[in-house]
């Protein structure tokens, strides 16, 4: 019973604060662009509205892909610790999360390719290419972190940080690399190539109508929530529920502000970038960890 309540707690947090923070993010972008911006609850209306529309399906692969994407991400989400608030204590293993996370991504890729629109295929191909780019330095940094603490349990790392201080100060290089990779995971500029509207007409989403769009928007929100949560847990010391949300918001707004003033890389430039500077920094981080500094 308590587990169910905790799972519900995590999901509701992700739903409510995920969408709220997205709304705040839009507001921040608007202020950078010298305008007023939409209300903070705009994203709730957007998602709910898309659910009321009458859309089209593009065959069972598409339906199944969308459901798999959302289901996979929700499953991932339940394992993510929100600071010291954990739905399944002891099971919040980093590798479980990474593994489950691919289910959502693959579901999305499958569904979007199932639409048969070439722009969607290009978008999915770009998204997977970009994933290759950022996963390599990201995993190297995280692995070095896990090696350092001799555990892959995120809650344990959060607890250690509450004693030893935040990892962002102990592993500044690693945190920088993880943040650059986070920008790519969120799909924000300069790593916006997979959905680039001006180039490939918003890529994977091109054929999504009504409910499917709503579900994908929710899935996107949850994905962002997972990605930023892991960053906050691993590098900013998690903290209790409210501290966690505050840190979350800080990271999110920081990412939004960077994305507002940068253009996007071409896809191969993005991968090239990830495999040069962040990868090099990641190796330096590994060296430092192994050398015990």
């Amino acid at each position: 019973m308590a587990v169910a309540a905790r799972v519900a707690g995590v999901l509701l947090t992700a739903f409510f604060f995920g969408l709220t923070f997205e709304g705040i993010g839009r507001k921040v972008t608007a202020r950078i662009q010298k305008r007023y911006g939409p209300p903070w609850y705009q994203n709730f209306i957007d998602v709910l509205k898309t659910l009321t529309k009458h859309g089209w399906t593009h065959g069972w692969i598409f339906d199944f892909g969308v459901v798999m994407a959302l289901g996979g991400v929700i499953a991932t989400l339940t394992f993510v610790p929100l600071g010291n608030f954990v739905a399944f204590p002891g099971l919040d293993n980093f590798f479980v999360i990474v593994y489950l996370f691919t289910v959502g991504a693959l579901g999305m890729a499958m569904g979007m390719v199932g639409t048969g629109n070439p722009w969607a295929s290009i978008g999915v191909a770009r998204a997977l290419t970009l994933m290759l780019g950022y996963e390599v330095p990201y995993l190297i940094v995280i692995t070095s972190l896990l090696y350092n603490f001799k555990t892959s349990n995120i809650s344990t790392i959060v607890e250690i940080q509450s004693v030893n201080g935040w990892n962002i100060f102990r592993f500044p290089i690693g945190a920088l690399v993880a943040f650059i990779c986070l920008q790519g995971m969120l799909g924000k500029e300069p790593f916006e190539a997979p959905i680039a509207p001006a180039e490939i007409a918003s890529g994977p989403m091109v054929e999504l109508s009504a409910k499917y769009m709503g579900l994908l928007m929710l899935m996107n929100t949850f994905m962002e929530f997972v990605e930023i949560s892991i960053f906050v847990d691993l590098f900013l010391g998690g903290g209790n529920y409210f501290e966690f949300l505050l840190k979350y918001l800080t990271v999110w707004i920081f990412a939004i502000m960077i994305s507002a003033v940068l253009p996007r890389f071409r896809i191969e430039q993005a991968v090239y970038f990830y495999w040069t500077v962040p990868l090099l920094l990641a190796f330096i981080q590994v060296f430092l960890v192994v050398a015990g500094m």
Partner: peptide, 22 residues
């Protein structure tokens, strides 16, 4: 749509494809 008049205040924004447009 841009900074002077700002349509996004009302939740109105451009969408790339007809599938998502109202």
């Amino acid at each position: 749509m841009t900074s002077r008049f700002d349509l996004e205040r009302f939740g109105i924004g451009p969408m790339a494809t007809p599938r998502q447009a109202d």
